[in-house]
């Protein structure tokens, strides 16, 4: 039985179709990343799974149950962490966990287990107002983990964190997957995060999924291979170089992107031509396609817009 089953779900706010005829099935133990620019409908979708919004059309089943009439059971199955959570200032980490634990009727010993899991034992007596951004997000995750949830919903869990704090959170989530076979849906702006944690990436735009798969599958299916970004002092004539799929110039034949099958094959030919045509290379960057590049090539807009 799938853990989450979404069938033809739509949700409209006034005139905006936030979610448009979406269907999605998520199995036990899957880590799924939802990527998309602001306003793509990620948060609305998550909120419908969380049960605080109800779909205008379509059905959402969680472990075979809908929110109607099963709210109490479903609250026990789901753990969630919201964007930039704040807590009661003058309560410490341990007290905050005890408070939320009491809502699930959990003994205080559970607080100890969670403090270990999210690596906050050393900060148990620190007021939440004095926690760092990373510690605060770990506390938010700790609260999400209190009830040993089957499903974790994380809305931008690492936005605004420094790379070290972000990695620390990733390790915790990785461990959960291995040890508890938790199912997780995560929204994020960070490609590395989606790539590191999730085997399935769903790209959303205007209330629909526009692509789905692992990062490799996505780049193979939708991408244009690899990218050479180049800036030259005068126009170049590229005829005669093989392996160029497409170009995207800011200044015609002088500054822009060259999409190629394989950088290793095309780059030597390109540099050879610049010297024969007596052109100076001002800037050069070669890279694999990122999710942002993918998004641009599919929609013409940036992920972060």
């Amino acid at each position: 039985m799938p853990v989450i089953e979404i069938k033809n779900v739509s949700k409209t706010f006034k005139t905006v179709k936030a979610v448009n005829e979406l269907s999605l099935t998520i199995n036990q133990g899957e880590f799924v990343a939802l990527l998309g620019p602001n306003g793509a409908g990620k948060t609305t979708l998550i909120e419908m799974i969380e049960g605080i919004q109800s779909p205008d059309k379509g059905e959402i089943h969680i472990m075979g149950k809908t929110w109607k009439g099963h709210a109490h059971e479903l609250h026990h199955l789901i753990g969630l962490s919201l964007q930039e959570t704040k807590f009661i200032d003058k309560l410490n980490t341990e007290e905050t966990l005890n408070l939320f634990g009491s809502f699930y009727n959990l003994p205080k010993s559970r607080t100890e287990e969670v403090l270990d899991m999210v690596n906050l034992q050393a900060k148990r007596k620190t007021f939440t107002v004095n926690l760092s951004g990373g510690q605060r997000q770990r506390l938010a995750l700790g609260i999400a983990l209190l009830n040993n949830p089957k499903i974790l919903l994380l809305d931008e869990p690492t936005t605004g964190l420094d790379p070290g704090a972000r990695r620390e959170l990733w390790y915790i989530l990785e461990k959960l997957k291995k040890e508890y076979n938790t199912t997780m849906i995560l929204t994020t702006h960070y490609m590395e995060e989606a790539e590191y944690l999730c085997e399935r990436i769903l790209i959303m735009d205007k209330g629909r999924f526009i692509a789905e798969g692992t990062l490799n599958e996505l780049t193979q299916k939708h991408g244009e291979g690899e990218i050479i970004e180049i800036n030259l002092d005068k126009e170049i004539n590229l005829s005669g170089i093989s392996g160029i799929k497409k170009t995207n110039w800011e200044i015609p034949n002088q500054k822009g992107r060259i999409y190629v099958d394989n950088i290793a094959e095309t780059l030597p030919a390109l540099t050879a031509i610049t010297s024969t045509q007596n052109i100076k290379i001002l800037e050069l960057e070669c890279r694999r396609m990122t999710l942002d590049d993918l998004f641009i090539s599919m929609t013409g807009r940036h992920l972060h817009e």
Binding site: E50, G51, I52, H72, H75, H76, I78, L80, L82, T85, K86, F87, I88, F100, F103, Y104, N105, I143, N147
Partner: peptide, 15 residues
């Protein structure tokens, strides 16, 4: 509590 989204966080529990 509403400003801090804690109310929202609380009603997502069986409280």
């Amino acid at each position: 509590l509403r400003m801090k989204k804690l109310l929202r966080r609380m009603v997502a529990t069986p409280m």
